[in-house]
């Protein structure tokens, strides 16, 4: 006689085997195959970069990479251009554009589909401060303790760095933002050029927190830590209820990639220098 439990176990072991082979199989691994959007096949072999006076361009074979609006994609530093070229080189059979954040950020900065200027973005970001994740503490005791422990130092850093005094709130009420804080932050945001500001906006929307993004830009936190702090409540619940890879881990990976991409763009646009190697003669002087 067949033992029903045995059959059941067997069935699940079969499912497990199928699942494992699916992951290993390189053809199925190509996520773009099961996509819900129009894609292009990879139509180029090599990716490279060329320098054009002060800016850098990316080439796919011998064609220059262009933005969706048809302008040539130019960036102002070599590392950023190389990173974009590497991103295109990493595409396998199909070009998976939704995961190419660096290209997307540079495209948006050049094409400016929202017809925004730096002042629009700066005022949007200054208004965002009032709904910063870090300013809303939970009413639950245990979570609140965790938040105070993890968010406290970042808020302290923020107050010290910008010489402001920001208060936090409990519940749903918005915390008051001082006029001085708004002025200081607006001046800070406007000190960046448009591509950097656009990237900053992208990163802030991923983290839902301008303070965390500013901490990243100032190298106080790295992207991984910032995302962890932004998802603190989720992590707290995960500790209690268990982790689901296709929700929590997927979300974490996506947010970290977004924040890291925006940081790369911000840091590369704020350097724009032309470094020259010292020649032998200079060294003796």
């Amino acid at each position: 006689m067949l033992n029903p439990i045995n059959v059941h176990c067997k069935m699940f072991s079969v499912i497990n085997i199928i699942k494992k082979t699916n992951v290993i199989n390189p053809q199925i691994f190509d996520a773009v195959k099961h996509r819900c959007y129009a894609t292009h096949k990879r139509f180029y072999r090599r990716t490279d970069i060329v320098q054009n006076e002060k800016s850098w361009e990316i080439t796919l074979d011998h064609r220059r990479l262009k933005t969706p609006n048809g302008r040539v994609l130019t960036v102002n530093t070599e590392p950023l251009a190389r990173a974009i070229a590497a991103e295109w080189d990493a595409q396998v059979e199909y070009i998976s554009q939704p995961t190419m954040h660096l290209t997307a950020l540079c495209n948006t900065a050049l094409d400016n589909p929202g017809k925004l200027n730096s002042h629009d973005i700066a005022s949007y970001l200054v208004d965002f401060i009032a709904t910063d994740t870090l300013l809303f503490y939970s009413e639950e005791e245990e979570l609140k303790k965790l938040q105070e422990k993890k968010w406290g130092p970042v808020l302290e850093w923020f107050n010290k760095r910008f010489e402001v005094k920001q208060v936090v709130t409990k519940g749903l009420e918005l915390p008051p933002i001082a006029t001085n804080t708004r002025a200081v932050l607006a001046r800070y945001f406007l000190s960046y050029d448009f591509p950097a500001l656009n990237a900053m906006c992208f990163g802030i929307e991923a983290l839902k927190s301008p303070i965390l993004m500013l901490a990243c830009v100032d190298r106080y936190l790295d992207p991984k830590e910032a995302v962890l702090l932004a998802r603190l409540e989720e992590e707290f619940q995960v500790m209690r209820w268990g982790r689901v890879p296709w929700a929590h881990e997927l979300n974490q990976a996506e947010l970290t990639a977004r924040v890291a991409a925006s940081l790369i763009v911000i840091h590369s646009s704020s350097e724009r220098h032309s470094a020259a190697n010292k020649s032998q003669g200079d060294r003796n002087v």
Binding site: I28, A31, L250, A260
Partner: peptide, 19 residues
Amino acid sequence: TYYDYLHFSRRYKEINSEF
């Protein structure tokens, strides 16, 4: 930062294609 970008965008693709 560049490592984080490379690593996590690859992780994202992997998890996505698995599930």
